[in-house]
């Protein structure tokens, strides 16, 4: 599955207005979206770029190995849980630190999805094109699954917003929420959800991000891709003057794990 994307920013003061405009454009009521994203990083550190070229002598056989050992990229991945406001801890018993027994994954109402986004394609089509894959996790503990696959928990955040669908364009007006306070060092996601109102937006101004996307099954058919790009650009033109949609730098959406030089050789 491939995704065509455009992004725009909406200041908080204009959020309600934009929400109404989008409702008019899409001719539908906004659909509430709350998602919990847990970001994972592979346990293995990426190799130094080019390190495989330097090692070894000048024997011919090394050349062969170099080809095989071409450094494979490691990627950040996410598990996503779709939530409703009712899933969060209610205000009343927030003072009582009662462990929430709703272990993720066991409740069929809390759906988990494994998501992977590739680095956006090179080439300027006027929209961001990237490969995505998302797999529903039907049962079991998603965190244990991710760890068993050699991933480390990085952090989690909440995505809150509204979704619209206009023809083939999926419009998501959202912002990122985080738990307040300094982030504690932990290796597994929180077992229980905080209260919804205690979450603080990542952006201190409380601004929203408008994401317009079209899903394309197969990039093999250029006609379909062109049609998708065309439609997304039409939507961009439609929103001109309301929200400026644009293509972000492709490396901003880079999910590859970067090599970090570690001069002291300390294993982190």
């Amino acid at each position: 599955m491939h995704e065509l994307l455009l992004f725009g920013q909406v200041p908080r003061s204009r959020h309600d207005q934009v929400l109404k405009i989008l409702a008019g454009v899409a001719a539908m009521q906004p659909q509430r979206v709350i998602e919990r994203h847990i970001v994972y990083k592979p346990q293995r550190e990426p190799e130094e770029p080019g390190s495989n070229l330097r090692r070894g002598g000048s024997q011919g056989i090394v050349q062969k190995q170099t080809k095989q050992n071409a450094a494979k990229d490691l990627y950040f991945t996410q598990t996503v849980q779709s939530l409703a406001e009712g899933n969060f801890k209610s205000e009343q018993n927030s003072s009582v630190q009662k462990p929430n027994l709703k272990v993720e994954g066991n409740d069929s109402g809390n759906k988990w999805t494994f998501q992977f986004h590739d680095v956006p394609d090179t080439g300027d089509r006027g929209v961001t094109v990237r490969m995505t894959s998302s797999t529903d996790i039907v049962e079991g503990d998603p965190h244990a699954y991710m760890v068993a696959f050699g991933n480390n928990y990085v952090s989690e955040y909440y995505l809150e917003g509204h979704r619209f669908v206009n023809q083939n364009v999926v419009i998501l007006l959202h912002r990122i929420l985080q738990e307040p306070g300094p982030r504690p060092i932990q290796t597994s996601p929180q077992k229980s959800l905080p209260t919804f109102n205690s979450l603080k937006p990542l952006d201190p101004s409380g601004g929203y991000v408008l994401q317009a996307s079209i899903l394309v099954q197969d990039l093999g058919k250029p006609a379909i891709l062109d049609q998708g790009v065309e439609e997304l650009k039409r939507f961009k033109d439609l929103m001109k003057g309301c929200v400026e949609l644009d293509v972000p730098d492709r490396l901003l959406l880079d999910t590859r794990v970067k090599y970090q030089a570690n001069p002291f050789g300390v294993q982190r």
Partner: peptide, 20 residues
């Protein structure tokens, strides 16, 4: 007064890698 909005780049980076 409202603080200046966070640049989109930061938000996207956070969404992909989970850290600021």
């Amino acid at each position: 007064p409202e603080p200046p909005p966070l640049p989109l780049a930061t938000i996207l980076r956070f969404m992909t890698t989970g850290s600021v």
